[in-house]
Design a binder for these strands. Structure first.
Length: 437
RNA sequence: GGAGAGGUGGCCGAGUGGUUUAAGGCGACGGCCUCGAAAGUCGUUAUUCUGAUUUUUCAGGAUCGUGGGUUCGAAUCCCACCCUCUCCGCCA
């Protein structure tokens, strides 16, 4: 008997019942993102699906009843041939309807997988990044008595960054770090992990750097954004684009105890992205690479406290930049700039002196129950109570490569050397300055 | 890579075609007992969908690793895949 398991276990991203019963509201909210979808077809499909489901269920009821009767008759040694003949017809009929139902279920589910999350009411409305709202700022741009160099020139002059040889080994959009540059990147990763795990209540995780299709569907990267992922040839594995993928899937298809929430995790991983469609952008330097290092923060929360957790997560990521004494600002993404799975996102943007611009260095997002629903992550509020979906939050805490570029540019000196931020010196064997060789 | 064993509810574990409507146990929750607790005892104890009722239930469907197949009927039989464990080989 063909099951409906796939519809039952992985519901859509949004609650299918809620979408069906409030389609007008959902449509309006989704359209704030500037996304248009074919709601009419969805509604008629969904309605049709329920009609067929009712028919299938009543036929199965009949079948179950008759089945018991046949068993009972056979045990008594009676002849059950007439009932069996009748049930054969029911069974044939059922097979046709079940096939129809399966097709409809797949269509409804496929539609729901393409619907993005509903933005939180506090998210500013807008078309694109121009409409994002600045929330706060820290520090101010450094004063230079000379014209500041871009970080790729600084790195090349110091002999710590090498883009040319990286492209020989791998290709464009890769980098090699040498000596103090490699040490700086490593020091940053250790510094960030130490702050988050010792002071902020996150548990360190080293996850796999590849993930399967189920995991990437759970986070919302599949099926819509396959083009940005590297797939391993001959395997159903993908290189992770962020540690958010393995971390979110830690508890896929599990029911957590309510007392264990909020559960906070921090993971350092490399991240791998195709960056398809960004050919002209950020072609130089450490800003946009196919492989980069990142410390990721992840929180599983109850629905009640998830927005408090978003503030905490953002503040924890910010604290890294504060301790490095880097000028940054916090921006609330508008409806049009919000990512697929996000209900609300704060971006942390770091000041880059050469470009005289802020550049994203962290993105802190509350996905509410969107990912949890796709990935089946629930919690039990109390003993004997019904399970509910958790809220998932993630944020970079922060991107290591971009931080290196910010340090090089903001801490550069007229003689070409770069001062090491004080908090990093213990992580770099006391090194205070990276000098021209 | 070779050989073998296995996957059943929160956990352990029985179940080789039809009163299995998944036994039994552990744990958890509640009642009784008690000054209180332990012990004892009685009861409750999965998830999910549809529809009624409406906030408390009721009726029905699905779920025994996943997906197919055989059958009037599958946890049980057949096929494919996934995962776990044991032994051997190779390897950081």
């Amino acid at each position: 008997m063909p099951g409906l398991a796939f519809f039952n276990i992985i519901s859509g991203m949004l609650d299918p019942k809620f979408v069906r019963e409030n389609s007008q509201l959902v449509k309006t909210l989704i359209e704030k993102r500037g996304v248009k979808l074919n709601w009419k077809d969805f509604l008629s499909l969904s309605q049709k699906r329920n009609e067929i489901l009712k028919k299938v269920e009543s036929l199965r009821f009949e079948q179950n009843k008759a089945s018991k009767e046949i068993g009972w008759k056979k045990q008594e040694g009676e002849n059950a041939a007439s009932v069996i003949a009748e049930m054969r017809k029911v069974s044939d009929n059922l097979k046709i309807l079940e096939e129809e139902l399966k097709v409809l279920d797949e269509k409804v589910h496929a539609f729901l997988l393409t619907v993005p999350n509903i933005p939180h009411e506090s998210v500013p409305e807008g078309k694109d990044e121009e409409d994002n709202e600045e929330v706060r700022r820290f520090g101010r741009p450094p004063d230079f008595s000379f014209s500041p160099k871009p970080h790729w020139d600084i790195g090349a002059d110091l002999g710590i960054l090498d883009f040319e040889r990286a492209s020989k080994i791998a290709g464009a959009r890769f980098v090699i770090y040498y000596g103090a540059g490699a040490l700086l990147e490593r020091a940053l990763i250790n510094f960030m992990l130490d702050v988050h795990t010792r002071e902020k209540g996150y548990r360190e995780v080293i996850p796999p750097y590849v993930a399967n299709e189920e995991s990437l569907t759970g986070t919302g990267n599949l099926p819509k954004f396959e083009d940005d992922l590297f797939k391993l040839r001959g395997y159903s594995w993908y290189m992770i684009p962020t540690a958010e993928v393995p971390l979110t899937n830690l508890f896929r298809d599990e029911i957590l105890e309510g007392e264990k929430l909020p559960a906070r995790f921090a993971a350092y991983t490399p991240c791998f992205r195709q960056e398809a469609g960004s050919y002209g952008k950020d072609v130089r330097g450490l800003i946009r690479l196919h492989q980069f290092n990142k410390v990721e923060l992840m929180t599983f929360s109850t629905p009640e406290s998830s927005y408090d957790e978003l503030e905490k997560l953002t503040a924890d990521a910010e604290d890294i930049l504060r301790r490095l004494d880097l000028h940054y600002r916090v921006v609330a993404l508008c409806t049009g700039d919000l990512g697929f799975a996000g209900a609300k996102t704060y971006d942390l943007e770091i000041w880059m002196p050469h470009r005289r611009k802020f550049v994203e260095i962290s993105s802190c997002t509350n996905c509410e129950d969107f990912q949890a629903r796709r990935a089946g992550i629930r919690y039990r509020p109390g003993p004997m109570e019904k399970p509910e979906y958790v809220h998932t939050l993630n944020g970079s805490g922060v991107a290591a490569g971009r931080t290196v570029s910010a340090i090089l540019e903001n801490y550069q000196q007229e003689d070409g050397s770069v001062l090491v931020p004080e908090v990093l010196q213990p992580y770099m064997n006391g090194l205070e300055r990276i000098s021209v060789p």
